[in-house]
Structures are given as structure tokens and as C-alpha cells.
Amino acid sequence: MAVDYATPSPSAPDTRFDYFWNQQGEWVEEPNVRRGGESGVQRLHSANGQLLYAKRQVGHTYRSLRHPMGRPTVLRERDALQSLAALGVGVPKLVFCGAQRDTQGQWRALLVTEALDGFQEIDQWYESHDRAHYGEALHEAILKQLADTLARMHKGRWQHSCLYAKHIFLRVVGEGAAARPEIATLDLEKCRQRFSAQSAARHDLKQLRRHSSFSDADWSKLLYFYKTAFGSPIKGLES
């Protein structure tokens, strides 16, 4: 029985896997059937009250040249979480990741992360009219912070691959002139490294443009900040 785990613990990996697997909470994303198996997300609480999200999978795998026989997608997501955190990209904190084969050889897999406390989807922030509350100076800082975050990810050759506005989360810390934005991204199940930073950037930015509600003016400003942070224009990308 193979176990792959993310964080050191005095407990054996098998014990930690069983502990999290046996926890039950509210379904945030009901299990759906895809990739030959099931995957869903539950909301849990740790012993100290910390809100957690547990992605639970059975037989839910992807195939690649490196893993032609299939590998649980949460392991790919774990790799992305760890790598992006090392690059300074805001992502949920990893609590545990594990994968086991049952007696029939089918994968069971878990990815447990801490909730992004105080964050909300960026579109929800716009819908709540917080832009008018904080003013344009803070909104410009948000666009710049988002651009810097994405450029940092892409310069590391990481492509999110599912960069919709609903996967970009925002938290504003402080009030008045002291207010500052923080950006995080999640749902990294399809995240992968590309051969070039340009390829990663071009794919994600085109996708974000299609799946976000930025006005033309806001998108142009975001793209300006992005090109400055990235250090060069992105071929094939229009404002």
C-alpha cells in the first residue's frame, strides 16, 4: 500500500490518511464522476477549530508520459501548491496530501488545505460594491497585485490551466490609506509546468480574459501591470 504525504508528522502517514479519510463534513462540491472516478470537496474543522477543505477522490487519475498508468490528480495539485508557495504566489496552506491503493488496486486520495480566511472571489468583491467603498487607488493596487501574482507564477513556467475569475481570491487588509490587497489562487488540479513562461502566460491570460468580468479599461490596465511585472510583451495576446 503506497502512501504519499505532504507534511511531516509524528504520526505514521497511514494513520494520518485514515484519520482524514474517516472525517465527514458538509459537501462544498458534491462528488462528480470524471477521469474514471469520483472527486468532491468537503468542509471540515480541525481539532483547534481551523476551517479545512478536504478534496476526496476515488479512482480519479490523470495520465502523462511520466505516469502512463495513471496518478491521482491531487498529487499533481499538491506539487503545484508547494511550488507556487515557494515562488511567493498566494495559495491555500497545505495540511495533508495522501494517496493509497485499496485491495482491488484502486486509488483513494486526499488533499486537505486550510481555508483562505478573509478572502472572497474577486467577482464577489466587485458585486458587493467594495470598489466604490475603497476607491480607485485601492482598485489599481488590486490590479497590480493580481498582475504581479500571475507574472510570478508564469515566470516559474507554471500554467494554472483553469484560470477563471472564480479561482482568484482577494482579501483587503486594513482601512483607508493603509488598506492593501492580497491575492490568492486555488483549484490547481490542472496546474502544470510548461516549457516556456511565454506559453504559460499566453494560455492563462487568454483564458482569464474569456472567463472574467473585467471591463475593457480594467483589462488594459491589468495587462499593462502584467507586462511590466513579466518583463516582456506576450506574443499573440491582445489588450
Results as ranks from 00 to 15, higher is better:
105 G>N: 10
15 T>C: 01
101 R>F: 01
210 R>F: 11
197 A>H: 02
55 K>Y: 08
160 H>T: 04
179 A>D: 06
163 L>N: 08
129 H>W: 11
229 A>Q: 05
17 F>P: 09
158 W>Y: 13
106 Q>A: 02
114 E>W: 09
128 S>E: 11
118 G>K: 09
214 F>M: 12
70 G>R: 05
180 R>S: 12
97 C>D: 10
35 R>W: 03
210 R>N: 11
107 W>Y: 15
231 G>F: 07
208 L>Y: 11
93 K>V: 13
192 R>W: 11
36 G>Y: 04
122 I>A: 05
3 V>Q: 03
28 V>L: 15
105 G>A: 05
87 L>M: 05
33 V>E: 14
191 C>A: 15
84 L>E: 06
66 R>L: 15
199 S>V: 02
216 D>I: 03
175 E>Y: 10
6 A>N: 06
111 L>C: 12
152 R>A: 07
102 D>H: 07
139 H>Y: 13
124 Q>L: 07
136 E>Y: 00
226 Y>W: 01
152 R>N: 02
52 L>Y: 06
51 L>D: 10
124 Q>P: 04
3 V>I: 14
14 D>Q: 14
151 A>V: 01
179 A>W: 09
109 A>W: 08
153 M>A: 13
112 V>L: 07
198 Q>S: 08
120 Q>Y: 03
119 F>K: 07
90 G>T: 07
204 D>A: 06
236 G>L: 04
108 R>I: 02
61 T>M: 04
90 G>K: 02
198 Q>V: 08
160 H>S: 09
123 D>C: 03
233 P>S: 05
166 K>T: 07
196 S>C: 03
37 G>I: 02
185 T>V: 15
104 Q>L: 15
20 F>L: 07
218 D>H: 11
114 E>Q: 13
109 A>V: 03
193 Q>E: 15
99 A>F: 09
43 R>D: 03
153 M>E: 07
83 S>I: 05
174 G>Q: 01
55 K>V: 06
85 A>E: 14
141 A>K: 13
140 E>I: 05
148 D>K: 06
1 M>A: 08
8 P>E: 10
178 A>E: 14
224 Y>D: 11
106 Q>N: 06
95 V>G: 04
76 R>F: 11
47 A>P: 00
85 A>N: 12
128 S>P: 01
96 F>Y: 15
220 S>D: 09
215 S>W: 04
215 S>N: 11
221 K>G: 00
89 V>I: 12
217 A>H: 13
231 G>A: 05
201 A>F: 06
45 H>T: 08
15 T>I: 11
115 A>L: 03
201 A>Q: 01
126 Y>P: 00
224 Y>P: 02
148 D>A: 05
105 G>S: 12
16 R>S: 04
57 Q>D: 03
223 L>K: 10
151 A>I: 00
6 A>G: 15
87 L>C: 14
151 A>W: 03
224 Y>S: 14
79 D>G: 12
192 R>Y: 08
66 R>W: 14
92 P>G: 08
171 R>I: 00
216 D>C: 00
2 A>H: 10
19 Y>R: 15
6 A>P: 13
149 T>K: 02
198 Q>A: 11
10 P>C: 00
183 I>R: 02
67 H>F: 15
73 T>E: 09
